[in-house]
């Protein structure tokens, strides 16, 4: 009976998730409306400029997700609670997805803005290295062995991976300005200062929406992990029971 209860407990998504989910639907539709219909078309770049809202939103969320990895890695090493490890792992996966979006939209933007697919622009290059760092992080998590070991090693890597980010950014920026001094200015579109007010509003709105989506994914990811855990526990229990039955 106890088992059954626990299954049902995990099959029903929590209230927090439901609230997030139903909140997200209108907001995402609103964000799409703002981006594609309400906000004006940029003069020189045309429709392609709209990718910028998602590019910036994904970039911000990727950094945020990796910051969450850092926080929960430290928490895991101090408290050794499994939930912290799960949160760090799920957040890293979401972060990698957002990083991939940044890396995919970046070249599209670059192609229409500067007529080249890839520039070794510091933000883009840092994002690329970030992508590799967290792929490596996920590889540690996929190591063989018991979860405690993987969680411990992944936490250590999650910490040094994140403190590396500002150093990478500095190095790449100096390197880029030394090698290609005037490929592009300090992207005035990206500073926010040169933006049309309606564009700025749309940008802020999409960034907020994508943050909400991040939390939705995080909640869902944790839920899936817990479900997976519960399943493997049940399986182990069942196996033990079978073995005992056969032995007797």
């Amino acid at each position: 009976m106890d088992n059954k209860n626990s299954i049902f407990r995990f099959l029903i998504p929590s209230k927090g998730y439901n609230i997030l989910f139903y909140l997200a639907i209108p907001i995402v539709i609103m964000a799409l409306y703002l981006t594609f219909i309400w906000s004006p078309v940029e003069r020189t770049m045309g429709e392609v400029q709209k990718i910028f809202y998602f590019h910036v939103g994904s970039a911000w969320n990727a950094f945020f997700a990796f910051f969450v990895v850092l926080v929960f890695s430290i928490l895991y090493l101090v408290k050794r609670k499994r939930i912290y490890d799960i949160i760090a792992g799920v957040s890293a996966e979401i972060g990698v997805v957002f990083t991939a979006i940044v890396l995919a939209t970046g070249p599209i933007w670059a192609h229409s803005a500067w007529n080249t697919w890839w520039t070794w622009e510091p933000r883009l290059t840092t994002t690329l290295i970030l992508f590799f760092i967290y792929i490596a992080y996920i590889m540690i998590r996929n190591m063989e062995g018991e979860w405690q070991k993987k969680a411990r090693l992944a936490s250590v890597f999650g910490i040094i991976g994140f403190i590396n980010v500002p150093i990478v950014f500095m190095a790449v920026r100096w390197w880029e300005t030394n090698l290609h001094p005037v490929v592009l200015g300090d992207g005035n579109e990206q500073s926010g200062g040169g933006l049309e007010p309606s564009m700025l509003f749309t940008l802020l709105f999409t960034v907020a929406t994508m943050t909400l989506v991040y939390f939705l994914f995080l909640r869902k990811g944790i839920y899936i992990e817990q479900l997976r855990l519960e399943t493997s526990k049940l399986k182990a229990k069942w196996q033990e029971k079978e073995i005992n039955r056969e032995a007797s």
């Binding site: 290295i129 590799f132 760092i133 792929i135 490596a136 590889m139 540690i140 190591m143 890597f157 040094i160 991976g161 590396n164 150093i167 990478v168 500095m170 190095a171 790449v172 100096w174 390197w175």
Partner: peptide
Amino acid sequence: MLLPVLLFPLVTPIVIA
């Protein structure tokens, strides 16, 4: 196989500098 994958992204600043 794991060590280079872990190490290279982290030492990029050193390599560049």
